[in-house]
Design a protein around this nucleic acid. Structure first.
Ligand code: SF4
Ligand code: SF4
Lengths: 149, 149
DNA sequence: ATGTTTAAAGACATAATACTCTTAATTACA
DNA sequence: TGTAATTAAGAGTATTATGTCTTTAAACAT
């Protein structure tokens, strides 16, 4: 598995928020119910997104979280790095530590290309794009739930 | 990280064995020292490779483990599946569960191709190939150690 | 002011992974 | 026959990931 669960939860929540027409505050409780994620755990995950200034939170009645930037400006990778920390694909794509490019194994070049591809993909797709593709379907929320879950 | 540590250790040990000129028994102790892996832990990992009939073990003096098949017939994927179990790339390449191809997200096609590539790579490269690339270098053992570690 | 709604922070619990050690079984050899 | 060498099996510990709960702080409403 490439991404941690925290990371997936964060992604799903971000996409869910990106799918909203208006960018009003949504309670974490509501998000957790829509996405079927533990409220307590999701709270922890979203705190990291708030700290990373991907989300903005507001306490009290009618509070909650919302996207700080325009969803078209938040990449998949932004969310991943905010939660899982700096790129996990830094080193060997296989996870073999301490390996360099001096004496690469036969996999190295192919892996490097793939790594590059994965990084590009994560860097180039925004949560807006991930949310918007359900446009031909009216049940957007349900769809996203289905898609991302 | 794509592979578990157990998996990486198993790979490194397999490649190490594949690099030997003669396929005699090598003690796990020796392997663990060469690869700088805990002897106890490596023992556990290699037991799985023995059960999976990738390695063959022999007890007592001059015993140890050795490859059961020709290294050219053992793929990277063989070792991975023996240790980590069946392919972890079955579902969404991102690790998002429950997602199908009915309403794919914009990443789906690209991910599918990458997943395919990764699987092909793991399926097509043998531990013999991983071991043999050090041929232009005389310090094969050291090299492999460097490469795989 | 007081109470209600909400997220933040931090403590606690459980599960999965990684690692260590001990004991048992097998083999060789003196 | 007995001792040393070696893996197998299984128990035990440590660390990390995941999940739960409680308390605190902020914002609002009355
Ligand atoms: S040489 Fe092979 S093992 Fe080393 S970093 Fe490159 S792909 Fe990984
Ligand atoms: S549609 Fe997207 S989230 Fe779903 S399995 Fe495919 S790549 Fe993963």
């Amino acid at each position: 598995m490439l991404l941690s669960k925290s990371c997936m939860y964060g992604l799903r929540a971000s996409v869910q928020l990106a799918g909203k027409k208006d960018n009003t505050y949504v309670t974490i409780r509501e998000l957790s119910e829509d996405l079927d994620i533990s409220f307590f755990f999701l709270t922890k995950v979203l705190q990291r997104l708030t700290q990373a200034e991907i989300l903005e939170s507001y306490k009290g009645p009618n509070g909650g979280v919302r996207l700080l930037k325009h969803p078209g400006e938040v990449t998949f990778l932004d969310v991943v790095t905010a939660i899982d920390g700096a790129c996990t694909l830094n080193e060997c794509a296989l996870g073999l530590p301490g390996c360099g490019v001096m004496k690469p194994c036969p996999l190295h070049d192919k892996w490097s290309i793939m790594k590059e591809n994965i990084m590009n993909m994560m860097q180039n797709i925004t949560i807006a794009e991930l949310a918007n593709r359900g446009n031909d379907n009216l049940d957007l929320d349900g769809l996203i739930h289905y898609i991302i879950r």
